[in-house]
Nucleic acid binder design. Sequence first.
DNA 1: TTGTAAGCGTTATCAG
DNA 2: CTGATAACGCTTACAA
Lengths: 355, 355
Amino acid sequence: MTTTLRRHTIADVAKAAGVSKTAVSFAFNAPDRLGTETVNHIIDVATTLGYRPHPVASSLARRKTGTLAILTPQPLGEIFENPYHALFASGVATAAEAAGYALQFISPLKGSLARAVERASVDGIIAVGLDPAHPEVARIRRYGMRIVLVDAAASELAPSVSIDDEAGAHAAAAHLVALGHRDVLVLSVEPPAGSGGTPAAVAAERMLGYRRAFDEVGATISDDQVVDAPTTIQGGHEAFGGAWDDGQRPTAVLAMSDATAIGALHATREYGIEVPGDLSIVGFDDIDQASYTNPPLTTIHQPVRRKGEEAVRLLLQPTTDTGRPEHPRLDVRLVIRGSTGPVRRHDRRWPTVDR
Amino acid sequence: MTTTLRRHTIADVAKAAGVSKTAVSFAFNAPDRLGTETVNHIIDVATTLGYRPHPVASSLARRKTGTLAILTPQPLGEIFENPYHALFASGVATAAEAAGYALQFISPLKGSLARAVERASVDGIIAVGLDPAHPEVARIRRYGMRIVLVDAAASELAPSVSIDDEAGAHAAAAHLVALGHRDVLVLSVEPPAGSGGTPAAVAAERMLGYRRAFDEVGATISDDQVVDAPTTIQGGHEAFGGAWDDGQRPTAVLAMSDATAIGALHATREYGIEVPGDLSIVGFDDIDQASYTNPPLTTIHQPVRRKGEEAVRLLLQPTTDTGRPEHPRLDVRLVIRGSTGPVRRHDRRWPTVDR
DNA sequence: TTGTAAGCGTTATCAG
DNA sequence: CTGATAACGCTTACAA
């Protein structure tokens, strides 16, 4: 029979050690304010009693939890399995650990982000892919928690950290254009769930960059050359396959994420398409996997881990009462690997698809 | 100038609504005990005031936090970037979300797991790869938190969920043996940091399984055919390369994780080794990436996501006062893909390594 | 159905 | 250097 014995409290320790509660508290949190003797004695008694300061009570009294959170509008299952998010979380976690903070995740609870936010005992929130105008942003601030936005448009409402999406996309497309490609398929990212189809800020920016590169040589990307896909390998696989089956015959693919790019790469095998001989592919993000594909993926590198660290810095830095929220923008760069090459001069005759 | 205005408390709402604190509390937590009228009124007042019940105060009074944690002895950065752990976390997260729990991560704080555990305000902990005899396990229980062990030996000290490592490993090795392989290189996993070289329970079990399969045909695996490697692609790459450079010429590789198997696979390209023509490789875990390699990886599938869900179930289930802690063991199975084949009859003459 | 009052376990203020 | 005592903000018997 397991007797659930009452946890020892600070009072128990105080009594057992023959001191006041205050002394015990000091022994743990401000040992310098006590005699070395007393401290040792108190700690001894505490450990033999198996006592630890109750973290919740402590948080209440201190008015801080020592925890910060990553908030995402998607369910956590999706987040952890997405290499981009994993990389980002890794950066956040490293910086949080270094600063002595615990890390928690917030995602919709029973479908409601609001409910999840309400119940969160954290000092600050790093929101990924949340629009500054989203009602939760205002609520979080009203609740007195700090917030930093990631992969969102810069705004007065909250600090944010992002990358130069337009420039990155432009570099990707310009690389293709320079290789002679004019006929491209864009694998965009799905608009966020509750947005009614409005593309995420990130997707919009990247589209701008792609278009600018084509404009510069008098070429264009028509709307039916742009298809949305879930940011997964499978999503990219199916999106590319769908476009190909519909009769599209691009000479290159511009994917807004490495995951979809890798998916497209796998799809090419099914169709007997050679990369980069028949088709060039360029991704975005430069996740670890990108250098392990066959051929290795040409992509836009962004410092994902550092993005996470930067977000923590912004969240934890003393309030910049200088006025405006900061909006650091990290650099990106084109990484040319094996999945891109010059466009074929003469059309290859593709096997007819039977549908 | 940002005036940090005091958060509204339950008392404010009570006063503004002209009711008692109790009524406000009920309006949020037990609306049935109040008149519909009153509830609506209170909620109205609360929302216009921007009030939410303070989660920490609430936790203190309720004596539960509504949060559970995944604990790992490794730094979080490593965890998130490891596909196996990511998959596991995904399972845990999904189950936790469904049960209305928030998810937090605990990892050594300033090098000390103990410190991190002390500060954790969670109701329960899922510890991955922690030995039942590890002092933290006892401490966690003494603190009154529940705990479930994952990838650890079964013991009286705590419930656990695991897989049949020995059987899985045996299946992997038997597959190779059946293909005629006798000369194998085992890529084991590094012993945990503070263990003084004692292999993790999981590694020991798997080694047993490998050996049994070889024993069955009168073959053996000598100690120098076993090398440790960090559980990463790079780790596998380097471990295989090191062994090859040392002059080992196995016809097959038994890797204790897909990550190291994939690393070995990449290394083969550098050496001009053909898989599976010259060398067979079999992994362990069956992470998503395993089906996307070239050739696709033969491996042991384990239900990683379900392992996470099962851990949550064990953690949250009403105390089974029937006596002993449960130790569910999930099934594994061999998945034959493209990285394994029959052993070559005649030795290929490997190019001499220049070192 | 609603209100009163006693915890929950710390920390922090302010005398001694 | 040490010790009462008042917060911290909510929940929950117990009463009314």
